[in-house]
Design a protein around this nucleic acid. Structure first.
Lengths: 191, 191
DNA sequence: TCACTAACGCTATATCTGTAGCATTTACCA
DNA sequence: TGGTAAATGCTACAGATATAGCGTTAGTGA
């Protein structure tokens, strides 16, 4: 009589070796990502650095996108607080500054994740969840300044141009872009 | 005495067979793209469908991204006219509608190109040039309604949220999104 | 402590991706 | 109309990517 596991590897015996393996692998993913960006996170490189066998990594994570998605889920336990500068313009500018910093870091983990989201559904999901969380947290910034406006529309109006220019168009960052688009979003909120 | 070609393949003898080869290949790329999106445009599939040998395709185009970039350049000879509805809000809404349509087509050539731009520098360049052209053409829409505003900032404020939601976040399109973000950009322009 | 089996390690293999070397075809020019 | 070499076709091969099968290790619960 054969026994067929009902769950994916790692689900039914989460303790001990399984957790240790995941830790080693995700640590290798993080260091490779920091050193060489998305292209450095190949299954072979992760296997070599983590000391975990190739086939094990293929079994538990389908592809590099899934590795990044898992490593992203593990890393986002650190909570995020929206800024409170005293004005909507100030808050949106600060949020945009954080996004500019994240997208222009060298190498940028955020850029690597965006790249991954175009190759792996798992990474796309992880990224979507991450930003949904952020928008939920940041909604208070709009609510306290413009209670009648839709928070999500205003937040996207503020930050989407940053993503558009830096992630999609790959234009260079300009010193005023964070404030400029925060200003246009603020105008939209108070009209 | 050997002779070393100074230019990449296809540059010194652009007529006859060379042009025929390019035509067959780009036709294959277009049909594959329409059938199965970016992932269907593999070097092997293009070779099989076009009847042109694998190695020839590798020689003239580095990767699928370069194939898409070339096919994109060839297809964008059709000029684009900015809308003129009589109001800035109407014009921006119409532009956003066109973008929503392009991004939600099934399959979407624009989505395929965005995906390609994350894998191939050539595709990234082609996409950037295309949108730069569009912004230049569309600037008149802003200039005639709000001469003091920066056209590019307003145009990006209007359309970036559409790209953000549909291309980056892969959220579903909503019927009002084109008008909603056109409205917030209009508010920013007239403040 | 011990039996059970999930999870892992290992080897072999299949497929995909990309390139090198050389033969063949054919566009271009004198 | 030839002569030259650009462009292509072909074969072989190197490397990366992915999976299958089976033996081994070790977490889990009785």
């Amino acid at each position: 009589m054969e026994s067929i596991p009902q769950a994916p590897p790692g689900a039914t015996r989460p303790g001990g070796r399984t957790a240790r393996t995941r830790g080693q692998v995700l640590e290798a993913v993080a260091s490779l990502l920091l050193e060489g960006g998305f292209d450095a996170v190949t299954m072979d490189a992760v296997a070599a650095r983590s000391g975990i066998h190739r086939t094990t990594i293929y079994r538990r994570w389908r592809d590099p996108g899934a590795l990044l998605a898992d490593s992203f889920e593990a890393a986002r336990e650190q909570p995020w607080q929206p800024p409170d500068t005293g004005s909507l313009l100030g808050d949106l500018t600060e949020i945009n500054h954080q996004i500019v910093t994240a997208l222009t870091a060298e190498p940028s983990i955020t850029q690597a994740l965006i790249t991954a989201s175009f190759r792996s559904p798992a990474a796309a999901e992880a990224l979507k969840h991450f930003w949904d969380d952020r928008f939920t947290s940041a909604a208070v910034v709009v609510k306290r300044a413009a209670p009648d406006a839709d928070p999500r529309t205003i937040l996207i109006a503020a930050c989407a141009p940053i993503f558009y220019e830096l992630a999609l168009m790959r234009s260079p960052a300009t010193p005023d872009m964070a404030a400029r688009y925060a200003r246009s979003a603020t105008a939209a909120a108070t009209t």
